[in-house]
Design a protein around this nucleic acid. Sequence first.
DNA 1: AAATCTTTCCGTACATGTACGATGCAATGT
DNA 2: ACATTGCATCGTACATGTACGGAAAGATTT
Lengths: 214, 214
Amino acid sequence: MPLSVQTRREKQKAELRSELVEAAHKLVQEEGYEGLTIRKLAKRVGYAPMSVYSYFADKQDILFALAEDAFETLAQRIEEHPSDDPIEALQAVMTEYAAFGLGNPNEYRTVFMTEKTRPPGGKTFAEMHEANPAMKVLISRVEACVAAGKLKGDPRAIATTLWAVGHGTISLLITFPFYPFGDPQAFVKRMCDFALAGLMTQDMPPLTETPPNC
Amino acid sequence: MPLSVQTRREKQKAELRSELVEAAHKLVQEEGYEGLTIRKLAKRVGYAPMSVYSYFADKQDILFALAEDAFETLAQRIEEHPSDDPIEALQAVMTEYAAFGLGNPNEYRTVFMTEKTRPPGGKTFAEMHEANPAMKVLISRVEACVAAGKLKGDPRAIATTLWAVGHGTISLLITFPFYPFGDPQAFVKRMCDFALAGLMTQDMPPLTETPPNC
DNA sequence: AAATCTTTCCGTACATGTACGATGCAATGT
DNA sequence: ACATTGCATCGTACATGTACGGAAAGATTT
């Protein structure tokens, strides 16, 4: 069965879109993050500035696309740090996650620090969460810890707790770079150890359901 | 001794500056933090847009001023909730901090989730740390816990840990309102209890100094 | 083949932060 | 008294994200 007209067009559209993403990536690499502007991006691929909006809803959408790429490589990097000890494997997730956030603060801000009234591409947040390779690795490694008896409680609740602690740590470092946190790496390690030590001695019940009045 | 000419002028300047801060505060409350623009702010106080730059280096500087105000009112609210049990007093700090953030998400975003790349008014970050009233209350209550033998370790390190956990919790709730965290109050309480329980069984060494090569 | 509809592309326009420099006034020096 | 200097104020200008609507091209229907 040959490609229908619509699918061919959609494929073409996807190609142009990824061409734009690639150009955006290069712009960021060459001129830094603030060097990425719609006008430069359009000129780079030979379009008028407003044509970019045929492929991305707005600039955030472009940043989301960049972030998706980054998360994929993050997941790869995490998986390059396996361990027989499930707790050490979890530590590796936190460490690589922190390295990603501190190394790509703008992507991190875009994904985790700007209000998500509108998830990208019409995805649900749950879907977005599932589709995030890095988060999938986190949950699976938490499940490994629970299975090994190292942690007790609901894996999703444990993962969410780790997320909150890690996110608090990283976002504070990003937002207040002049605050006396000391060495960022050391601060991250301290918070990571603190959270894991707490989780190893406490039981995490599942998250309560949202009351039905919302 | 009468005021010298310079000091009188400086006082006038400070008055105009705080008038601008007040107007900025109202703008944020009324229209959200994206409603705060230089032009609106200038119009509100009857100046030309560029005149704002006589009192603030840039928009970030305005946000810093708002942050200082917010820290002060937060400290006041905290001190309205004392307790004989030092741990309960600490819990009150966390609860008030969370209530402040969840009750004023726009202000919270402005103050705690907008990048602060440069310390305000040429202050050292250590000075900024000391001058922060909310942090001072938090640290003093942590010190009370340490003195009472309820917590062990460096008070500033413990306080920073609590801040990171609290901030992570609140900023996630603000940023991902549709994520199934469950009831926000319950999630806050869970994270607060988790952090305090961890701190009661762990020792917190002082934060490492930033290496001298920076 | 013609008409209609859909999608893609872009020209124009507006609000924003802020760099640069002019203008006028007050303080200071001679 | 006059010149100079410094500073508060602001007019203009530029790059930016993006809303709006038009134009052009292609697909679909009649």
